[in-house]
Design a protein around this nucleic acid. Structure first.
Lengths: 206, 206
DNA sequence: TCAAAAATATACCGATCGGTATTAAAAATT
DNA sequence: AATTTTTAATACCGATCGGTATATTTTTGA
């Protein structure tokens, strides 16, 4: 299990930095659930137990909270997947671990309302250009990370050498996100499992 | 090209029904872009050129407009895919047409901001139970529709008889939605194409 | 320990939110 | 064409929105 800094007691960092972090931790799941427009300042004050004065003493505006919350959610996802992938050695096992962890993200990330990449893409598209560019960067980074892993596997002769690493990475990403979406819409865990099975088959056939 | 009723001139239906339809047509793309919480009544009055009085004369509340707009968006999607699939005879060709049309949905549906199923799932989940149950129904219907087509293909001896029709349908759906998501987040058309290529390969290997 | 600085709470701002009662206009019925 | 009925516009409601100036409390450094 990966733990995240509950920073409230750390005396080496300033009070401001501590509450800033505290606010981010408490609001990140709310932004993920309700979206940017759907999350109000009263949601933020309610979740933190702080007042508006305190929030605006640590952040310039709601935007800054939302952006920090997004970064936090992504960092969490990355930490969890990295930790799980690090337990394996071969590229194939690492890819399978990636699908396992990411696809079952909800299990690992205590009910935060689905994948932040998907949520933010849908939420920020057409409405919030800054957040949109952030989510674009993150998605590209994911793709490159997985594609790099596949290329490592090709170099290691684990995978067929005619594999299109980018296409495979994108397809895996699509399948995982699609699996999460289906699960979110229907509540059917077995549906998600079926799609992830297909993703695993794809990896095994590489 | 499929046309949708521009109902303004039809004298056989009441004025109320005409403006009701007019409001739905004008607001459906807005709800799809901005989401339920993100779409305000001023968005609605601005898009229609009508006043609040008129809106509330034809709908009980914002909810009712949102629900009708969702139904309209889904009906549109369904009409477009059905029309394109009807042009083909074999199950394989119909499946390919389905991926073609749905995956390139944005092209067919003049910039309405992505797939309504995905948008509504993300938007309504955790916030709007009625819309959530609607989107669940729709997704199940899509799945059954595609699975039924695959079963037809199996019966016709077009596809291998050990194919899991439900798993394949779900996987195709996931890949298509994933492709749309990637495209929406990155703006990269070639990424979407690469994922859809994988979906086509899956169909060809059935 | 005590003053300076930083952080939080309070009280308030104009704008906008969804929604409604009432009035004016347009459509349908005779 | 006149009248009734329906539909749309106006003006307004309380609540909440994001945000801020000011006062109070809490940290912090000397």
């Amino acid at each position: 299990m990966v733990y995240f800094c509950v920073v409230k007691e750390d005396k080496n960092i300033s009070k401001a930095e501590r509450t800033r972090q505290f606010i981010i931790e408490k609001t990140a799941p709310i932004f993920n659930k309700k979206g940017y427009a759907g999350t109000s300042l009263s949601d933020i004050t309610e979740a933190t137990g702080l007042t508006k004065g305190s929030i605006y003493g640590n952040f310039a505006d709601k935007d800054e909270v939302a952006l920090a919350a997004f970064d936090y959610n992504i960092a969490r996802m990355r930490a969890v997947t990295s930790a799980e992938m690090a337990k394996h050695n071969t590229a194939r096992e690492q890819l399978l671990a990636y699908v396992e962890v990411y696809g079952n993200y909800m299990k690992y990330s205590f009910q935060t309302g689905g994948c932040p990449i998907m949520n933010t893409t849908v939420d920020a598209d057409d409405t919030h250009p800054v957040l949109k560019s952030k989510v674009c960067q993150v998605m590209m980074a994911w793709k490159d990370r997985v594609a790099g892993l596949i290329e490592k596997g090709i170099a290691n002769k684990e995978f067929k050498k005619d594999t299109d690493s980018e296409q495979t990475a994108l397809t895996l990403f699509a399948m995982i996100e699609g699996a999460i979406l289906i699960n979110q819409a229907t509540g059917r865990l077995d549906y998600r499992k079926k799609v992830l099975q297909s993703a695993e088959k794809l990896i095994k056939d590489l």
